[in-house]
Design a protein around this nucleic acid. Structure first.
Lengths: 167, 167
DNA sequence: GTTAATTAAATTGTGCACAATATATTTCCT
DNA sequence: AGGAAATATATTGTGCACAATTTAATTAAC
């Protein structure tokens, strides 16, 4: 009898190692996509994509902290700064920021002291979008319907995993 | 004094709700991206991207199960079937499968009984790639350097979260 | 002080995800 | 049988991610 094709060349226990459902990475990957889907309807109402929502959170937080410090101006963020918060590079952020500027959520100006740097600043529209945004995490918490402490514990474990991975 | 721009219109506790670091979703999103990065060097050696690796795992598993059942042929998978395993639609899978066929990892043929369906089948090259692939999860486990039971517990929690989200 | 090295952002190109639509085949209905 | 509904995949278009390169501005070195 002639051999027409290859046969699985690894042992059963090795195959178990390659089982999709056994992979932590697959569950994380799936959780991330499912979570993004869960946010989608709420974010759509705000006219934001999920990465745009994350970026807005960074900008709102920075603006709030500036005001807490007693300064009355607008918080300025460079691309580097936003990138280090979100772990994204300029290749992702540059077009993202352009789209958000086009939506009127923020403005992009060059830093006068260092023309290489961009100064990202929230517009009034961007600042005021926070009013509706506060509902988003609350709505999602309802959706999840799990004990808050359990979710928090999961968050802490993931933080630890992240730290462990990138040394 | 004239008002030149808006001020953060939400209370401090509401701002805390919108803090990036407080979001479980952000930690999942980050963990997913960091994890993919951790796999990248190992997968690059196999000529696979991360989603391609996941797809190969589905095909290897199916091939193995067919052989376990005593059948000597090649396992055939439709796009629907692959999609339900990976939670991906034809919009993602169609081009993915084309690229993998171009790499010689699998073949795409129409099902004779139902011409609408595609039959995805591993090539010899695709089957034999499993030999090197078994090293990947082991190498990553070293990289993580966390108790295996802790990782498993995390996987189980994520599975539960996923189920909870999509009802 | 001019050139070299560094830094910040933008650009280019590839590969997912995913919504929306299109195409082709099969099944259902009568 | 013939047309409508359902099904499976492919296509189109948008928006990330990310590697690699480019451009422009600043700093360092001589």
């Amino acid at each position: 009898m002639m051999k027409t094709h290859a046969v699985m060349p690894i042992k059963i226990n090795e195959r178990e190692l390659l089982r999709l459902e056994n992979q932590l990475c697959f569950q994380i990957y799936t959780a991330s996509r499912v979570m993004t889907q869960a946010y989608k309807p709420f974010l759509k109402a705000l006219g934001l994509t999920y990465p745009q929502y994350l970026l807005m959170m960074v900008l709102w937080q920075k603006q709030g902290e500036l005001e807490d410090a007693g300064t009355m101006g607008l918080a300025q963020s460079s691309v580097m700064e936003l990138g280090s918060r979100l772990r994204l590079d300029s290749g992702t952020l540059s077009p993202l920021l352009k789209r958000m500027e086009a939506q009127g959520l923020l403005s992009r100006q060059r830093n006068a002291e260092d023309e290489r740097q961009l100064q990202v600043v929230l517009t009034d529209k961007g600042i005021n979008l926070s009013i509706e945004a506060v509902e988003v995490p609350l709505k999602l918490l309802c959706e999840l319907d799990m004990p808050a402490e359990e979710l928090w514990a999961l968050k802490l474990q993931l933080e630890q995993l992240i730290v462990t991975i990138d040394d």
